[in-house]
Design a protein around this nucleic acid. Sequence first.
DNA 1: CTGTTAGCGCATTCAT
DNA 2: ATGAATGCGCTAACAG
Lengths: 331, 331
Amino acid sequence: MKNKNPTIKDVAILCNVGISTVSRVLNNSDKVSKDTRKKILTVIEEIGYSPNLHARTLSSKKSFSLSLVVPDMGNQFYGMLYSTMENIMAENNHRIIVFPLTDKISLQKIKQKTDLIYQTDSVFIASLSVNNIFKKSSIPNKKIILIDSFDERFDSVHVDNFKIGEIAAHYLIEQSNKNSNFLLVTFKELENEFTSHVFSKRDAGFVSTLKKHKIKFETIYSDLFWSGGYEAIKKYFDKFPKKKLNIFTTCDMLGFGIKSYLDEIKFTPFNDYNLISVDDLPLSKVIGLTTIRQPLSEIAEASCDLYFSYLKGRKKIESILLNSSIIKRNT
Amino acid sequence: MKNKNPTIKDVAILCNVGISTVSRVLNNSDKVSKDTRKKILTVIEEIGYSPNLHARTLSSKKSFSLSLVVPDMGNQFYGMLYSTMENIMAENNHRIIVFPLTDKISLQKIKQKTDLIYQTDSVFIASLSVNNIFKKSSIPNKKIILIDSFDERFDSVHVDNFKIGEIAAHYLIEQSNKNSNFLLVTFKELENEFTSHVFSKRDAGFVSTLKKHKIKFETIYSDLFWSGGYEAIKKYFDKFPKKKLNIFTTCDMLGFGIKSYLDEIKFTPFNDYNLISVDDLPLSKVIGLTTIRQPLSEIAEASCDLYFSYLKGRKKIESILLNSSIIKRNT
DNA sequence: CTGTTAGCGCATTCAT
DNA sequence: ATGAATGCGCTAACAG
C-alpha cells in the first residue's frame, strides 16, 4: 500500500516513449498517434497511475480549483449554495474548496498567507466582506467574486436587502388587522470580522417603511441558530401579554422557530398573527411559511458565469443585482 | 494585480540570504539566528509573500489536506458533520476538501485518477461504500476512514443502524394504544453507486422487531427531500381512511414533513399518533420531535482521532462503534 | 508525431 | 547558523 505512486516517467519507460508524449495523452492533445495513445492509456490503467496535480499546477500555473468562503456550512443556505455551485463547476472541470469562517481560528488561518486559499485560481466570498477577512496587505492576488454582498472593487452578485425589508413591511401592513402590533425578529450583527450587513440592511428597509407609515413596532434580537427564533419569541411572550402580531423575521431559520412556538400556543395564522421571513429554504414550503425568496440557484449560476466570462477575457468589474420576490403561503 | 507572485527566491535576494534560510523560517526551524529570522519575516510581510503550497507539497510529499466524500451537502446532516470535522482539523492545521456525490457527473469525476481527491493525504468517506465510488484498480493509495459505514478493510466509525430500527420499534410498541396501526416511512435505497445501506438497515431492525412481536405494519417510501415526508404521508391519508398511527421514519428530514402534515390535519401527538425518527438535527428540538440521536460530534471527533492515531504510527485497522440513544420529546 | 530539456517553487541533503 | 546544489513530477517550448 505504500509503494510510492508511479510517475509520468514510469509510464513513459514502460511504454518506450518520452514523458512529453505521455503528458500529451494526459492533456488530450490531439498530436499523438492512435496507437501510442492507446498503449499509454493501457499502461496508465494497468499500473494505476494518477498524475500529480501539485506538480501539474506548479508547472502550468493553473490549479482548476476555486475557493468559496462562507460564514458557516452548518447553515443550510450556504450548504445549498455550495451544492449548486459545485454542480456547475464540476461540469466545467473545476473543484471548489470550501472555507467556512465559523470562529476566530478559521479566520486566523485564512489570514495566514500559507493557507490553501491563496493557491486556488479564484476566490468566491459569500456574505462576508473582503476587508474583514483579509488583511489589506494580503488580499489574494486573483479574481475575487462576491456573493450576497457588494464592493465596487470586485465582481458581485447580490440582492437588494434593503428592499427585502421594504417588501416585508408592505406585506405586513396590508395584512394587518386593527389592534395588531408589529414585531421585528432579527439577528444583531456585531461590527466585527464576521459582519455581513445582510441582516442590518433588511432591518433598515423594514424599519424605514414602517416609520414612513408612522407605524410603531418593537425589535427583538435572536441568536442565529435553529432554536433562535423559538426562544426569542417565547421570551417575548413570557414577558408581555399575548397580543396579535405582524412579524417580520430576517431569515427562514428564525421563522421556523417562531412559527413552531406560535403553533404551540395555538395562535392561528392570519387571525392571530402574520409572519413573513426571508430565504425560501425547502422546509418553508413544507410548513407553509410566507417568505421572501432568495433566488439561490440564480445567485449560484450568476456567480459561476462571472467567473467564466472572466476566464474568457472580461476585464471590467461587473455587478449583478437579482430580484427577490415574495412567496405567499399560510402565514 | 497580475504581477507574478513573489517567490522564496525573491525573499532570499531581498534579505541577502540563501533560500534555504528563508525556508527554515517558513518551517519554524529553530536553527536560524534571531536577527535574520526577524529580517526575513519583515520582508515577507512587506512584499506580501505567500509560499506556494503546490511546490511545497511536491517537495515534501505532505499536502496537509484531507478529502471528505459525502452524498450531499444540501443535506444538513453532512453539512454539520463537515463543519464539526473542519473545526477539529483546522486546529491541527489540516484542510478538508469536500467531495459531494450528488449525481453521475460528480461520481465520474471522482473515479478519474486526475481528480483532486487523489492528491490529498487521506480520504474520509461518509455513508457511501468504497466499492461503489471507486473502481477496484483506483482506490486511493492512502489512509481511508469510513464514517457511518463499515468495511473490514478500512478504519471506520459507525453506529448500529439495525439497532436503531429496533429501538424505534420498542418505543412505538410501548407507546401504542389499542387499534393503532404501525407505519414505516423510509427512503428506498436503490442498489446503485449511491447506496449507503443506512436506511435499509434501519428498516430491517424495525421490521424484524415488529415481526417478532407479530405486529402488522405498512411501509411507505418517500423521496429524500425536505418535502418527502409531507408528501408521502399526505398521499397515504388521501388514499386510506384516517386512523391512529405509530410512525417510524428513518431520518429527521422526513420526520419534519410528517409532523407538519399531522399538525395540519389536527392530529395530536400521543393521542392520535406517535412519531419517532432518527438524527436529532437542531430543528427537531425546536419542533419537539422524538428522535434517535446520531452522535454527530462524537462521530466527527472519533473520525479525526483515527486519523491522528494513524499519523502517530498506528498500523492496524480500527473500527469504532458509537451508541445512539433515544431523545423523547413531544411525539 | 515524438523526444529532450529547461524551468515551476520549495524542502532537504550536504557542505562550510 | 547558513548557502549551494539536487530533485520532487509535470508542462511547455524547442528541436527533430
